[in-house]
Simulated assay, not measured.
Amino acid sequence: MAKSNYIFTSESVSEGHPDKVCDRISDAVVDLFLSHDPYARVACETLATTNRLVLAGEVRGPQSVLDEVESVARAAVKDIGYEQDGFHWEKLDFACHLHQQSADIAVGVDAAGNKDEGAGDQGIMFGYACDETPGLMPAPIFYSHNILKSLADVRHSGEVAWLGPDAKSQVSLQYINGRPARATSVVVSTQHNEGVSNEEIRETVRRYVQSVLPDGWMCPEDQFYVNPTGRFVIGGPDGDAGLTGRKIIVDTYGGAAPHGGGAFSGKDPTKVDRSAAYAARYLAKNVVGAGLARKCTIQLSYAIGVSHPLSVYIDTHGTGEVDEDKLSDVLRQLMNLSPRGIREHLKLNRPVYARTAAYGHFGREPDAEGGFSWEKLDLVEQLKAAF
């Protein structure tokens, strides 16, 4: 029997966190290649440290695009807001080691003759949705993201000019009868300019935490932690090296659901680490959105070079209103879960990925340019009709 009364915690990190700087740059490179060729292949890893960026990986696309990579990377750092002595978009050293994709991988995954495009690697991918928030996301990660997003908004606008780009949040929620009821603790660490008092930082952060949490949910005062070390002036890649793909739980469900292990950023949509995780989220969200379950976990598994998933597993955690085996069959009928089918259904061959690099890949609003298409609820009526 599932536990109904408990405390659950999730964390988020801001766009200026060292690992998120790297995610943003890697995804900006993906967007760059897709803007020149919708069928480009990209696997881009980024390392960031004190005034240095290093990119490496494999690509397939117009060679001329490589000439634009450095300017795109510097523009991403500038947009995040790094103009500090230890990490400055204009002054940092840059090295690019992107090279052509392995021919052996290409042979295995490309379509040829009667063979459909295969998965670019083996792996398992999970999608999840629940009815705890309007975006059908777990509440702890939802509020953790939104606290940092609200601080980033006032930093970019200049309303709170002393805020730095690097920040982390952590929200612990008490669940009663399986539903989130209030925060038991909140932790926020944010980079700041020299000379700002701890009291000003605490009271400023408090305003935005209270604006994000529902009324009456604020944690006790002695469980509200702001910059617990007392000082956070040196931050970002100057304070800690960053790498692409190290915040996979922040990117997904905050630990409330399983994760297959594959990161998203820096990968073009032919790679099922990314596209199949988006598809699994899309299907799970539509199941919950249709009222067929209050919680839904979906697992997809793939083999390299094989087009269709080896398995489609569904768990509605005892909240389902329909037979899970039939639900699995219906979902397979509604969506082609091959790499090509996912890309075409969700229209993923577009440069829409840099915006996913911070504040979560899920629980976001679909936009006019095609970003976050996996968050649409356009299967709800078909699912209702099927049952």
Score class of each variant (00 low, 15 high):
Met1Ile: 01
Ala263Lys: 03
Pro220Ile: 06
Ser189Lys: 06
Asn193Asp: 14
Gly360Thr: 05
Gly61Trp: 13
Val380Met: 09
Val288Lys: 05
Lys295Gln: 15
Thr50Trp: 00
Ala56Phe: 05
Ala43Asp: 14
Lys285Val: 01
Thr133Ala: 08
Val77Lys: 03
Arg231Gly: 08
Leu92Ile: 08
Lys271Thr: 07
Val250Asp: 09
Gly113Asn: 02
Leu292Ser: 11
Asp378Ser: 09
Thr356Gly: 12
Thr270Asn: 00
Ala263Phe: 15
His156Val: 10
Lys347Ala: 15
Glu381Phe: 01
Tyr82Trp: 08
Gly16Pro: 02
Gly289Val: 08
Ser185Glu: 05
Val21Met: 03
Leu327Ala: 08
Leu53Asp: 05
Ser26Tyr: 07
Pro134Glu: 14
Ser328Val: 12
Ser144Tyr: 10
Gly305Pro: 09
Val21Ser: 03
Ala106Arg: 05
Ile249Glu: 04
Ala103Val: 12
Asp85Val: 08
Leu151Val: 06
Gly127Lys: 09
Pro309His: 01
Thr270Trp: 01
Val72His: 04
Lys168Cys: 10
Gln63Glu: 15
Thr9Ala: 09
Phe87Glu: 13
Pro258Met: 15
Ile248Leu: 14
Leu337Asp: 05
Val196Asn: 02
Ser301Trp: 06
Met218Thr: 11
Phe387Trp: 15
Thr49Gln: 03
Phe8Gly: 11
Asn51Ala: 07
Asp67Tyr: 07
Ile342Phe: 02
Tyr225Phe: 15
Leu383Ala: 11
Ala354Ile: 03
Phe94Met: 04
Phe33Gln: 00
Lys326Gly: 00
Asp315Thr: 10
Ser328Thr: 14
Ile25Ser: 04
Glu70Gly: 02
Ser150Val: 07
Asn227Met: 07
Val380Asp: 08
His345Asn: 09
